[in-house]
């Protein structure tokens, strides 16, 4: 058990170190976040000027911008796991990986988490600088940050499962790129990246809340700006259900895909 944790933990650590080699590229890509935040700041300023009590979706303008910092940082930190799996299947690299005493899924999960932590940290630093410059700080507490730190990794794991499933589609499709595009846009639109879920029509909100996308993006964003035990409980229940459902789906699809591999080759 301990050696397994060390093994997968070290994969994550190596992935994080490898990603640090891209510091310049990651910083450059993250700088785009500053542009996005500035544009949204201008847009929301106009929208907030029309609001009666200075609140939209229960958030003030500074809170809205900090919410965007988190959701954008989460979305933009996603590694292209689907492309890795797609390449593994398409080029036969999968066979090489299976020669190692590792779980294919856990190996990719560790790698994804390592990469994502570095990217998210850089995005968060840049986003925070921009938000501090544009709207200043918002009220935060250690307790709130701790609750955020619980919800965030689960959001990453959920997104990993989603991307991994998209990648596994390469066993049946010519390319997983099409599904990846739909998946990424779904996370963007239905996850509450640009707009909090409360802004969507009332009839749509319950549907969006039970979809896993909100648990990946909106949940950490809300937890950062408006942390509460009730929200933590609600988020963890939704995330827990989504993790169990996704894990079941991933193991079923992978079982079918690998049975195909074991019987018909890569």
């Amino acid at each position: 058990m301990r050696s397994s944790a060390l093994r997968y933990g070290w994969i994550g650590y190596t992935a994080a170190r490898s990603n640090m080699a891209y510091r310049g590229e990651v910083l450059f890509r993250s700088s785009f976040l500053a542009v996005i935040l500035y544009i949204f700041m201008r847009l929301w300023t106009v929208v907030y000027a029309e609001s009666k009590n200075g609140r939209i979706a229960g958030m003030t303008l500074p809170q809205m911008l900090w919410y965007l910092v988190i959701t954008e940082a989460v979305f933009m930190s996603a590694p292209r796991i689907w492309a890795e799996v797609d390449q593994d299947v398409r080029t036969g690299r999968l066979a090489v990986q299976l020669i190692r005493p590792l779980s294919y899924t856990a190996g990719h999960l560790s790698r994804a988490m390592g990469e994502r932590v570095v990217r998210f940290a850089i995005n968060l630093i840049i986003g925070s600088i921009v938000a501090l410059f544009l709207v200043g700080p918002i009220a935060m507490s250690i307790r709130g940050l701790a609750m955020f730190a619980v919800v965030l990794p689960v959001a990453f794991v959920l997104d990993f499962f989603g991307m991994f499933l998209v990648g596994l589609s390469a066993f049946w499709l010519e390319s997983a790129a099409g599904i990846a595009l739909i998946y990424s846009r779904s996370v963007m639109l239905f996850g509450g990246m640009f707009l909090p879920l409360e802004v969507y029509p009332d009839a749509l909100q319950p549907v969006l809340r039970i979809l896993p996308f909100a648990s990946m993006v909106s949940a950490p964003g809300r937890m950062f700006v408006n942390p509460s035990l009730a929200l933590l409980k609600e988020s963890l229940i939704t995330q827990g259900v989504a993790v169990v459902a996704y894990a079941g789906l991933v193991s079923t699809v992978q079982f079918i895909a690998f049975r195909r591999l074991f019987s018909n080759g890569g």
């Binding site: 050696s3 070290w10 994969i11 490898s18 891209y22 080029t91 090489v96 020669i99 190692r100 005493p101």
Partner: peptide
């Protein structure tokens, strides 16, 4: 052990020693 001339097992952006350290953990 396996060596595939067309497929690398080394981490491209890291020195070889980092891959060796990782393999030490993978093979316990």
């Amino acid at each position: 052990g396996a060596v595939f001339g067309l497929r690398s097992q080394l981490w491209y952006h890291l020195p070889p020693g980092d891959t060796f350290e990782l393999l030490a953990r993978i093979y316990n």
